[in-house]
Design a protein around this nucleic acid. Structure first.
Lengths: 137, 137
DNA sequence: ATTTGTGCAAATCGTTTGCATCTGA
DNA sequence: TCAGATGCAAACGATTTGCACAAAT
């Protein structure tokens, strides 16, 4: 999983309307340089520290939300406690291992959901989340 | 929506291995006396206060979790922030209106999920959650 | 120079816990 | 009587916010 080139990251951020600051570039490199990932703010913070990038936790949160609003990340509400951010923004679902707090992608077309009733008057479906919760066999 | 009789509540709690204390009876009456409901701890607390029952928020949390462990409630992790408890413990799914934090039941057999891959080695599926997120049309 | 981002520490929110007191069987 | 419940207030962990400082255009 090679990193992305600095130019690519910079242009990607610019396109999203975000200034390519040192922190944002570093976080983008971590997030998007190694395939699909699921990260919590805390985990990303530790990863950044380990990589020698000094970023405050507040900035991690700001950045994750900015990336999300820009469509670069998707936020997952799967566990009542922490939030996860998914670098795969296309339509897909998840296995969730509760005991480990770990998420595993299920490719987008694998799962088919049928029989959803019509939404109430004045509402439309924005998105259907399917979470397959796993326990030890 | 008539309330349940005190005797019914008492015996239901006893069967679940829980002492029918004043607070637990009052909360059980609120929860199970009016059909299927989705409540947050805070909402139940306010409802109890409004009904003239004095219960601390800590006891609300304790009670909700005890009811859940006893199989009287199901906890829903739908929103990253607060937890919801569902008085319908049978298999069913939900509409979720994010802007209002409101949940609506989808009857159990309506939704069919197909094509879920095999879980990883050593794991088994405990449960599949389907959340249909709604926005204004 | 101006605008936007960042860090820090304090604030907030939902939830949990420790402990003294009370209550139901 | 006495295990088990409850209330309170303090502790908690995740997230947010206010504001002075720093960096990007």
């Amino acid at each position: 999983m090679p990193g992305l080139s600095p130019q690519l990251i910079t242009s990607r951020l610019r396109k999203a309307g975000l200034r390519p600051t040192r922190q944002r570039c570093a976080l983008a490199a971590l997030l998007f340089g190694q395939g699909d990932r699921h990260v919590s703010a805390e985990a990303l913070h530790e990863e950044a520290s380990a990589a020698g990038v000094r970023v405050s936790l507040a900035t991690i949160y700001n950045t994750l939300h900015q990336f999300q609003q820009a469509g670069l990340l998707r936020e997952l509400a799967i566990d009542g406690q922490r939030s996860y951010f998914d670098t795969n923004t296309s339509n897909h679902n998840h296995f969730y291992i509760e005991t480990q707090g770990r998420l595993i992608d299920i490719p987008g077309h694998a799962v088919r959901v049928d029989g959803v009733p019509l939404p109430p008057e004045g509402m439309r479906i924005s998105h259907i989340d399917v979470v397959v919760r796993l326990v030890k066999a």
